[in-house]
Design a protein around this nucleic acid. Structure first.
Length: 790
DNA sequence: CGTACCGACCTTTTT
DNA sequence: GGTCGGTACG
């Protein structure tokens, strides 16, 4: 932030550097940053701690590559993890180059005042790059250039179709399981033939579905997310001429967030970089949080082995956060074993203490967050867009939203339920997809009777059967069925009308612009008309969403000009997922998002809510007790904490409604891993002296902070209830936090209701013995058992 | 064939 | 508490 911004108008060239006032490129960089920016040839590994100016180094390095004449913008390939990061990097590089007034800087597409790299430099995600390359060359792999991209929902629909066609019962063999199995092998780059050689990866049924799935995807001329990478790799490995062309084009390659690359991405990078080895990867093993989707932390841990000549630069100075925050985050991540040796430090001021806050339930927790935010508005000059709230799961946003709304504080959600996840939007997109790609059976099934046109389930099933048995698309199957008089005259005429509708829309697509086409779809399908006759609030909202979609399409077409056609729009819809730049909404809003999405961002004030065992770390991680899963959760905690610049709040609730019933979870182990220094423990439930003993001497140097009117625990007090000893001090009538106590009536999701027989152990080891109605006696580890008060 | 209601299952995290 | 699939009825 403070170290940002490029300096203009410097004169004279550095001796080692290129001409034309290059101090702007090197100015204000610390020694390791400088080294990274000036190491241009050969393999380079940048271990960039959180907030160490990574993006700055990358953009300056790109500028340096261009300024030294090593490469023109289109000879640089920069891969980022999200589209947002790509845009950010592009913007900042362009600004820097424009400030340098480099020769050639004005030859690009220049919009307004800036130097634009759009269309010249390759900065985007692996998936987007794959899509772009495949658009160009996929005919080599026997697909059509108009291929569609299936998101996870469409992929699941396809798996369902296949699974049903093979006669699997959805109850016994949920398509979801097949889909996740398929995705898991595909992120490792494996296709059915590979799995045949590694039969431990799938059982016969899974393999059968996988094979048929691939066959059907091919016929539908559709690619899933995994395909975008796998086919790109296949293109390169099977067609050396293509590989050679791109090898010579991309003379310099950079990969950001390298710790989150999966094995296919790794192979693609290797193929491209193998000739010149001008490969720079940047990452931080402590921020690897995507192993569940195939990211392999080994890629970064063994980079030096893969490229023996590698130069390693460590960026360890953090410019973002206070010493307190860095100290605490470091203290937490130190508990991980899968790390490189890297120590984050900062020269920033000590700053305010971290507040750890106990609340009785998730509503109080949300109220606390909102109260603190109002207080910040009142007492400091913090503005809404400087505040972020992070949570582990999207479901947690609801309660927070309620509180924000009730206190009239503007907020925005990043990620989660996306605009184009809405039914009506997906319906219209379904039409658009089908127009472009008539073999897209998933879209066909989606819209054949939307809006309702009297084509029922039986008819659709019959069409699907024909499609399956003749291995033809459902559109073709429909035509065939009509010709062979499959259906009665009523159904036949409805089907004819539907096919004619599609034909006329395809006609339209050839003649009119993208925005006009989408208007035509809404129009000719009578989609909007039906909604208008409904005149319910829901229908009203849907109409508004359609309008919003129309606006998005118009905006897209306007921005992209020639490139703004149907295909590029659909591609963008499939690949851009962060619902981030929705107009000016970001202004004056508090931001809420999952911890995962927060990676790469920074905010002066950060709240991390729901710090409880079973939620964060997630239940999956705590249940499995797999140390690698816990370590990944811990990295997630580290990521979240290091987003904060000045203030950090971490909260937990004693009870929380999960799936409609109350659960009691102990505070997150990560809270226990915080240092004593610089952390203030607060509880909204009054002081409970017994808790204080456990935390020991401690004593923070900070005095108690005002806790929005709540009684405040003295710093040094343990927030971690020792349930057994705490029973007495809990006031069950005042707080909703029940403790296990002999005789307490409890309910278990599978065993029903019973009463507590015995309580032993403390904290995370607390065990509860319960006798149930049918006299069975069970002993639970309280932490894992989903016991609730009956 | 369409709609309205009931119950199962659900929760990680995302390109 | 919310979604999706299944079922019963109009």
């Amino acid at each position: 932030m403070s170290h940002e911004g490029s300096t203009e108008g410097s004169t004279g060239g550095a001796a080692s550097g290129p001409p034309n006032g290059l101090e702007a490129i090197t100015k204000g960089l610390n020694p390791p940053q400088l080294e990274a920016v000036q190491t241009l040839d050969g393999p380079l590994l940048i271990l960039a701690g959180a907030g160490s100016g990574k993006t700055r180094v990358l953009t300056h390095r790109i500028a340096n590559l261009i300024a030294t004449g090593r490469a023109t913008p289109d000879q640089i390939l920069a891969v980022t993890f999200t589209n947002k990061a790509a845009r950010e990097m592009e913007k900042r590089t362009a600004a820097l180059l424009s400030a340098l007034r480099l020769p050639g800087a004005s030859t690009g597409n220049t919009f307004g005042s800036g130097y634009s790299l759009r269309g010249r430099m390759w900065i985007s995600t692996f998936h987007a790059i794959g899509a772009r390359l495949l658009r160009e060359h996929i005919e080599l792999l026997d697909y059509k250039t108009s291929f569609g991209i299936y998101d996870s929902g469409e992929q699941l629909a396809m798996v369902k179709k296949v699974s049903a066609a093979l006669g699997f019962d959805e109850k016994l063999h949920p398509a979801k399981n097949f889909a996740s199995r398929i995705n898991s092998v595909k992120t490792d780059g494996l296709m059915p033939d590979d799995v045949k050689k590694r039969r431990h990866l799938m059982d016969d049924q899974q393999l059968a579905v996988f094979e048929r799935y691939e066959e059907e995807m091919k016929r539908a001329n559709a690619l899933d997310f995994g395909d975008l990478l796998i086919k790109t790799h296949q293109l390169f490995s099977d067609y050396p001429a293509v590989l050679d062309a791109y090898r010579s084009q991309f003379r310099y390659i950079m990969v950001d967030e390298y710790q989150d690359t999966n094995s296919v991405q790794y192979k693609i990078v290797r193929l491209l970089a193998d000739g010149h080895k001008n490969l720079c990867v940047v990452g931080d093993e402590d921020q690897s949080i995507y192993s569940w989707r195939g990211a392999d932390i080994q890629n970064i841990l063994s980079f030096e082995k893969d490229f023996p000549e590698t130069k390693v630069v460590k960026l360890e100075e953090n410019y973002r956060s206070t010493q307190t925050i860095i100290g605490a985050a470091t203290h937490v991540i130190r508990n991980n074993t899968q790390r490189k040796d890297k120590t984050l430090f900062t020269n920033n001021p000590t700053g305010e203490p971290i507040i750890v806050r106990e609340e009785s339930n998730e509503y109080d927790e949300a109220r606390f967050v909102v109260n603190e935010i109002s207080k910040l508005f009142r007492e400091t000059d913090v503005s809404p867009e400087e505040i972020a709230v992070f949570y582990r799961t999207n479901a947690q946003s609801r309660v927070l939203e309620e509180q924000f709304r009730s206190r009239a504080i503007a907020y925005r959600l990043v990620g989660g339920m996306k605009f184009y996840d809405r039914m009506e939007v997906k319906d219209i997109l379904g039409y658009l997809k089908l127009i472009l790609n008539p073999s897209d059976d998933v879209s066909f099934k989606r819209i054949i009777n939307v809006p309702a046109r009297g084509i029922g389930k039986t008819t659709v099933e019959r069409i699907e059967e024909i499609s399956n048995s003749s291995r033809i698309s459902m559109i073709e199957a429909t035509t065939m069925a009509i010709e062979s008089r499959e259906f009665n005259s009523g159904t036949t005429s409805k089907l004819r009308n539907f096919l004619n509708l599609l034909l006329s829309l395809r006609d339209e697509a050839r003649q009119v612009s993208l925005p006009d086409l989408s208007i035509a779809v809404v129009d000719k399908t009578e989609y909007a008309k039906r909604l208008m006759t409904e005149s319910t609030p829901e229908a009203e909202a849907r109409l508004q969403n359609l309008e919003e979609l129309q606006n998005a399409i118009s905006k897209f077409a306007e921005e992209r000009g020639e490139e703004g056609h149907l295909q590029s729009f659909l591609e963008e819809m499939a690949l851009v997922s962060d619902a981030d730049d929705t107009g000016g909404e970001a202004e004056k809003c508090v931001t809420m998002m999952t911890l995962h999405i927060s990676k790469g961002l920074e905010y002066p004030v950060v709240f991390i809510v729901g710090c409880e065992e079973g939620l964060f770390p997630s239940g999956r991680a705590t249940d499995s007790n797999d140390p690698t899963e816990i370590e990944e959760e811990r990295r997630l905690c580290y990521v979240g904490m290091t987003r904060a610049e000045k203030r950090l709040f971490m909260t937990y609730a004693r009870t929380r409604k999960v799936w409609g019933s109350d659960q009691m979870n102990p505070p997150s182990r990560f809270l226990k891993e915080l240092p004593k220094e610089g952390v203030v423990q607060q509880s909204a439930m009054g002081s409970r002296p017994r808790f204080l003993e456990k935390w020991g001497d401690a004593g923070s140097e900070y005095g108690p902070q005002g806790g929005s009117g709540h009684p405040l625990m003295k710093s040094g007090g343990s927030p971690f209830p020792d349930y057994e000893n705490a029973v007495d001090s809990f006031d069950d009538t005042a707080s909703s936090g029940p403790a296990f106590k002999k005789g307490l009536r409890v309910r278990h999701p599978s065993y029903g209701t019973g009463s507590v027989l015995q309580v032993e152990g403390t904290g995370a080891d607390l065990k509860v013995t319960v006798v149930f109605a049918d006299n069975t006696v069970k002993k639970f580890v309280a932490k894992y058992a989903r016991l609730e008060k009956a």
